[in-house]
Nucleic acid binder design. Structure first.
Lengths: 190, 190
DNA sequence: TGTACATCAGTGAACGCGCGTTCACTGATGTAC
DNA sequence: TGTACATCAGTGAACGCGCGTTCACTGATGTAC
């Protein structure tokens, strides 16, 4: 025994997969324990409650994504290149881990209200800061940075949701260029 | 008594309000019955199950919205005017009934997979048909109609979600013109 | 119009079920001396 | 190195609770003749 870290990692992995596939409420502690191959009680050695498990998974995934967005955006290019690379990042991550994005997109409503507002922990703030810089530099017209962040996220998130439902086929990476163009066209129309 | 239709209408109204405010799973049959002012059993005179109640509410609201979109889009104007009026419609309906949109946006993931694909019952199909016509007429570049429908819906839905979370303040109607411009700019960039 | 019966809308206690969580326990591993 | 104890990770039966749903019932309204 004494392999707590490994078990914890497997709990997180299986929980994320099940939450993404069937939703948090529809996934029971027993479902997760069975998938991991441990007894129900074992989960409570690693997380104080089911809610805490779900919340931890969401916040970690969300903060991780925000950090990556900030890193790409902060490489000192023009806004066009920054947007292009952030959109490519979203699409690539989506393609390589659909369950993760499914979980983030579907359960955001339950957790977004108590997520940190720091740009390196919050995807919305990270995207917003990118556009604030572009406005300050005069690369796009002056406008409400929250509004243009919302537009931009919608342009990427809605096709991703359609992909999850099978309404859009193929990889998201194949759409990245088109979506980046759409984001910049929308941002310039303000 | 013999006022079944009235009671049914009140059940739908209160259920929608509670579902929107706290989610479907977190709302119990007892919550709804108490809000309406009847016993739990009374709900089963009007709906065979809780799931059926939620599903009926969603499909009716969704079909109603699709019908209105089609009506506005089918008035034989150019795509710019059609888009502008559809966006204005969304924003006006959002402002006048936030709980309804909250319910549609938050619970779409649970029901979208079994919604009708007819344009007059499905918002996505209605929006898609609008762009298909614009492509056929050469008003916007040739492109995947599902993709441009996704972009357009994202541009309107994401700000609406932000408004629900208090991240964007003020009415959606005040943003309609900006959002319509963004949709057309994005559609033309394809 | 009066009478007898059917139907409808609503009641509310009761049911069974699945859920999240607890807890006394086991045994392996770490630590102190 | 050996011994005694502490800690850690995991077990799985059991608990209580809230949920959706049922059902025998009541009484008002509609229908037939």
């Amino acid at each position: 025994m004494r392999d707590g870290a490994r078990t914890r990692a497997r709990i997180e992995e299986e929980a994320l997969r099940l939450f993404a596939a069937q939703g948090i409420e529809a996934t029971s502690i027993r479902d997760i324990a069975t998938a991991v191959g441990v007894a129900e009680g074992a989960l409570y050695r690693h997380f104080p409650s089911k809610d805490s498990l779900a919340r931890t998974l969401f916040q970690n995934a969300y903060a991780n994504l925000a950090g990556r967005v900030l890193a790409v955006a902060g490489e000192g290019m023009g806004v066009d290149d920054s947007v292009r690379r952030v959109v490519e990042l979203f699409c690539a991550l989506f393609d390589e881990n659909r369950p993760l994005f499914s979980f983030l997109l579907i359960s955001q409503h339950a957790f977004l209200s108590d997520v940190s507002r720091l740009p390196h922990r919050n995807v919305v703030e990270a995207v917003k800061s990118l556009f604030q810089e572009a406005i300050a530099k005069g690369e796009i017209p002056p406008q409400d940075p929250d509004e243009v962040a919302a537009l931009a996220l919608g342009i990427v998130a809605q096709p991703a949701i359609f992909a999850l439902y099978g309404r859009l086929q193929g990889s998201m990476a194949g759409r990245a260029s088109r979506l980046a163009d759409a984001v910049m066209a929308a941002a310039r129309s303000g």
